[in-house]
Design a binder for these strands. Structure first.
Length: 490
RNA sequence: GGCGCGUUCGUCUAGGGGUCUAGGACGCCGGCCUCUCACGCCGGUAACACGGGUUCGAAUCCCGUACGCGCUACCA
């Protein structure tokens, strides 16, 4: 218990207050390892990370893995993987709640020894019965205190342990986001802190863990706002100074409803595999409930430099996938080429179904595509033509542009293009000009058939660039194929 | 049901009594650019939940209503 007393109180501050420049800020992220990192959890982690970094503090990672069923090693790893992907580096841990049973048990024993808690032999059935009775009588139910002064000893048979609350205690705190908050103890009642099977309850466990880990700021989802009074009571019973609390609003799904696993994309790995960038994801998440004036774009380091709890909203936010897509393209546009190439390759290989050799053409193409794709998956889709063996034609595109009228144009181009040297957009352009002038057609009539011949589709980057991205021989071969296609049909 | 919290354009938000005929961003619509698709640029649409107060003056303060969310477990 000594250890618990060491906790230092960080200067109390309201929403408008400021923190001392250097502090002992210690935040924590405490997810339960469910097999994926939920975007709500990811944002909570991000806020904790940002707050710690902003104030030169430390972030502690703690896995709340008491649900042994779901808490497999793989489930844990998935959560950590999500954190790493988002560059949310932690300074301590991961600690595991399951490994701290002894500390939880000790705390309960201390509480029992000091009379701050007592044993309760009421059974679930009895409790339920009395609860229904008082509700039927129009009353509000909290534990009626039957065992409060019964003085049950350790050998009283099956029992739970309850916290003895002073009925007139006002369990109040100044929430860093919600402001002054609190509840009367009598509205809570004597809560169970240890189950009859000896396992500690969540509220006891978090308090002991946060105390032991020296957490100065508990930043967590608003769903815990109304759990705080009880936890405050536990801190008090332990004679410990509670940390500061900041509750962040929940993230809602489409239509303002709670995020549902089947209706919404709730895990960060979903977005990752859909081709979203970590920078975009972080930026999107941080702007859900937090703002910094009119600014929209924030890099990781900028978040770490600018984040303040005072600018966190109190109302829940609806996740908007369109905004994420926009952010993603923004980051796609400014990502250094080698990096982008590396990120794209796995997506491209997946789209093609075979390995891809790096080439200058592909590298050039990536620069052309960053203006046209919102995700890596989209970009890969648009890039397949450079690396594909047998180019398939989009049916509608072929029907519209690979018509007999295009044949003489393609033939003229094929001949002229064979002479182009060097094979660059600049050298290719004049060829189109001459062919266009000679056949007296508009650019559209000329470019579209070529585009379909080269890419199989009606949309691609500029035609000269698209040509130059392919080896000259390949480009010529595809034009020849298109001519053949027009002659003989599919 | 009880307790708590929330409510500014479709969405994320700025805004802490006059400078708000409410600003930015995404989306959407229109235009320009143009070989397609994009990008870019220009322009437009669109909000203070409702009702009472307080005040010379309210998006901003107070009360109520409605709606939404959270908690209300020997779950976390």
């Amino acid at each position: 218990m000594r250890k618990l007393l060491k906790i230092r109180q960080v200067v109390n501050q309201g929403r408008s207050g400021t923190l001392p420049p250097v502090s002992d800020v210690r935040t924590r992220f405490a997810p339960s390892p469910t097999g994926f990192l939920h975007i709500g959890g990811a944002r909570t982690a991000l806020f904790n990370w940002a707050f710690a970094r902003r104030h030169g503090g430390r972030l502690v990672l703690r896995l709340e893995d008491t649900d042994r069923e779901r808490s497999t090693r793989e489930a844990e790893e998935a959560v950590l993987e999500g954190m790493r992907w988002l560059d949310l580096d932690w300074d301590e841990g991961p600690h595991r709640q399951s490994e701290r049973g002894e500390r939880h048990a000790e705390a309960v024993e201390t509480l029992l020894a000091t009379g701050r808690a007592y044993r309760c032999t009421c059974t679930r059935e009895e409790l339920e019965e009395r609860k229904q009775a008082t509700i039927a009588a129009g009353g509000k139910w909290t534990y009626d205190g039957r065992c409060r002064d019964a003085g049950h000893g350790p050998d009283c048979g099956p029992h739970t342990v309850r916290l003895r609350l002073a009925p007139d205690a006002r369990l109040a705190w100044d929430d860093l986001v919600f402001g002054p908050s609190g509840q009367e103890a009598r509205e809570i009642g004597d809560a169970i802190i240890r189950r009859s099977d000896g396992a500690p309850l969540y509220h006891l466990a978090v308090v002991v863990d946060d105390l032991d880990m020296g957490i100065s700021h508990v930043i967590r989802g608003a769903d815990h706002h109304s759990n705080t009074p009880l936890q405050l009571a536990i801190y008090a019973a332990l004679d410990a100074t509670p940390p500061q609390f900041a509750h962040v609003p929940l993230i809602l799904g489409d239509g303002g409803k709670k995020l549902s696993k089947r209706m919404d994309a709730v895990s960060v790995q979903h977005y990752r595999s859909a081709g979203y960038l970590d920078d975009a994801m972080r930026n999107w998440l941080v702007r859900l409930g937090w703002s910094h004036g009119d600014r929209e774009i924030f890099s990781g380091p900028e978040i770490a430099a600018l984040f303040e709890l005072a600018n966190v909203s109190r109302s829940s936010a609806q996740a908007d996938p369109d905004k994420l897509a926009w952010l993603n393209q923004h980051y796609l546009k400014q990502m250094p080429r080698p990096e982008l190439l590396a990120e794209l390759t796995p997506f491209l290989e997946q789209a093609l179904g075979h390995a891809v050799e790096p080439s200058d053409g592909l590298a050039d193409l990536v620069d052309l595509l960053r203006e046209r794709a919102r995700t890596l998956a989209e970009m890969a889709e648009q890039a397949t033509f450079v690396a594909v063996q047998n180019l398939p034609y989009d049916e509608k595109a072929a029907a519209k542009h690979l018509k007999p009228a295009a044949r003489p144009l393609l033939e003229a181009l094929h001949t002229a293009l064979a002479e182009v040297d060097p094979w660059t957009p600049e050298a290719i352009e004049p060829v189109f000009e001459t062919v266009r002038a000679r056949h007296d057609v508009g650019m559209g009539k000329l470019a579209q058939p070529v585009r379909v011949a080269l890419t199989g589709r009606a949309a691609s980057p500029g035609i000269y660039e698209t040509l130059a991205v392919l080896p000259q021989a390949t480009a010529l071969a595809r034009i020849a194929e298109a001519i053949h296609f027009i002659k003989h049909g599919g």
